[in-house]
Design a protein around this nucleic acid. Structure first.
Lengths: 230, 230
DNA sequence: CGCTCGTTTGAGAGGTCTCAATTTGGGTGG
DNA sequence: CCACCCAAATTGAGACCTCTCAAACGAGCG
C-alpha cells in the first residue's frame, strides 16, 4: 500500500503537491495507492463514508447521483482534479458515486492522512482549498445553467466552451452522447433533438465530431451566462 | 475600518475563528468590518472580483444568479455561514449576487487578509475548508433535487427537512414564499400549486405557517434522496 | 454476419412556465 | 383604529419544453 518511487515523480508535479515539503509528501505517498481502473469501474458509491481522497491522474471520471435507478451526472473530471474532497473534509457520507469513463489512473490518499497533512502543511491546505473551490464553482455553474437555460441553450453553451478550449471550431466529443446529455441535464433523446435544432444556428454534428460553422450565430443563440467555463 | 472590541467576543466564538491564535484573530479583526444591513440590501454583485470574505453573523442572506433580469436563488444562508469563499480563494469573479433577506449583520474580512491568514494558521484554514465544503454539499444537493425530483417533491422534502430541524410538525416560513419558490427552482405560481397538491399528502399551509399533519404519508410522497439536509 | 448497445426519430403525455385576473394580507396615513 | 393601498399570493387558461415509451437505425465487436 504505497506509491512506487518512479510514479511519485509525476504526482509530485501536480499543483496540489508541488509546494509540499519533501518529508510530508513522502509520508503521504507511502500510505497512498496509485491504482489503474478499466473503463466503467465503480470507484465510490453514494452514501458511503469516504475512506480516501481521490486524484484523477489520468483518464476521466463521472460523478453522478442516483435515485430509483435513474442517474444524473453532476460533474465530469479530467486530470488533474480531486474528488470527494468535501466528504473527506467533513467526514460525512458521499453525495455522489463515481465511475471511470475510460481506463484511468487514480491516486487514493487515505482520508486520515489528508486531514492530518492538512493541519501541518499550509501549502497542501491551499491546494485542497483551491480544488474544492473549483469544484464548487463548477456545480454552481451547472445549477445556474440548469435553472436559467433551456436544454438546447445549455448544449449550445457547452459546444461554445468546448470549441474555445479546443482552440478550434472542430472537436471530438470526449464522452458518449448519453453521458453528455446527462451532464447537461437532459435525456439522450432530448440531446439528439437539441443538436439537430442547433444545425440552424451554426453547428454541425457528424458522428462524434462537432463543428461550429458560425460562431457568432451560435453565441447569439446561446446567450451565455457570464463566467462560462464548464 | 475595524471591528470594535465588544463585538469581537461573539465573533471569536464562531467555529471559524474559535481555534485561531489571539494574535492572528486580533490582526484580522483590526482590518475587518462588522456591518449592519437593512433588509433587501445588495451586498455583492455577480461578476465582480471579491474584495471581502463575508460572514453572516446575524440575519439571512440570499445568494442568487441573474440572467436577463430573471433571478434564481442558489442558496440561502443563515448564521453562521460564510459566503464568496470560492471566489476569494481563487480570486476569480463571483458567480452569484447576494442580498440580505432581513436586517442582518455581516462581518467583512478583506480577501487579502483571508489568504494571508490561511497560509499561517492551520486552524483558520480548517474552518474555511469546512465551510466551503458545506456550501459545496449544499449546492450539490440542490442540483440533485432539481434534476431528479418534481417541483412538488422538492417542496415536500424541504418541508420534511424544515420540520425535522424545527423539531416540531409546525413551523413558520423563514422567508417569502416567492423566495422559497425560487430556491426550490420553481415559480411562485408553481409553489402555490405544489403546496395545494401537498394538502392531500399530509401538509397544511395557512399564511406563513406550515403544518405536517401526516409525516409518514408525506415522506412516502417525497421519497427523499439520502443525505437530505437543505 | 449477426448481435448488442447507443443513437435517432416519432407520437403522445406530463410538468412547469407565462400571462392575466383575482384575492389576500400587511403596512400606512388619515 | 380603520380604510386604503400595494405587493404578494392564488387561481385559471393555454403554451412550451422535456420526458416517456416505442420503434427503427447504425456502428462496433465477437
Amino acid at each position: 500500500m504505497s506509491v512506487r518511487l518512479a510514479e511519485t515523480q509525476s504526482i509530485r508535479a501536480l499543483p496540489l503537491f508541488k509546494e509540499m515539503s519533501e518529508q510530508n509528501f513522502a509520508a503521504m505517498m507511502d500510505l497512498s495507492m496509485l491504482q489503474r481502473f478499466p473503463a466503467r469501474a465503480e470507484i465510490i458509491r453514494e452514501g458511503e463514508l469516504p475512506d480516501f481522497l481521490h486524484v484523477v491522474v489520468e483518464g476521466a471520471v463521472d460523478l453522478f447521483a442516483t435515485r430509483d435507478g435513474v442517474e444524473t451526472t453532476i460533474d465530469i473530471l479530467y486530470p488533474i482534479s480531486i474528488f470527494i474532497v468535501a466528504a473527506v473534509v467533513r467526514d460525512e457520507p458521499q453525495l455522489k458515486s463515481a465511475r471511470t469513463l475510460m481506463p484511468s489512473q487514480i491516486l487514493m490518499v487515505p482520508s486520515q492522512i489528508v486531514r492530518a497533512t492538512f493541519e501541518r502543511e499550509a501549502a497542501f491546505a491551499h491546494g485542497i482549498v483551491a480544488e474544492l473551490a473549483a469544484r464548487y464553482r463548477s456545480v454552481t455553474r451547472v445549477l445556474k445553467n440548469d435553472r436559467m437555460l433551456t436544454a438546447t441553450e445549455r448544449l449550445a453553451n457547452w459546444i461554445l466552451n468546448s470549441a474555445r478550449r479546443a482552440g478550434r471550431d472542430e472537436f471530438e466529443l470526449p464522452i458518449e452522447k448519453r453521458k453528455l446529455a446527462s451532464y447537461l441535464g437532459m435525456t439522450p433523446e432530448s440531446y439528439s433533438r437539441a443538436i439537430t435544432a442547433l444545425e440552424s444556428y451554426g453547428v454541425h454534428s457528424r458522428g462524434t465530431t462537432i463543428t461550429v460553422t458560425d460562431r457568432s450565430r451560435l453565441t447569439e443563440f446561446a446567450r451565455p451566462i457570464l463566467n462560462a467555463d464548464d
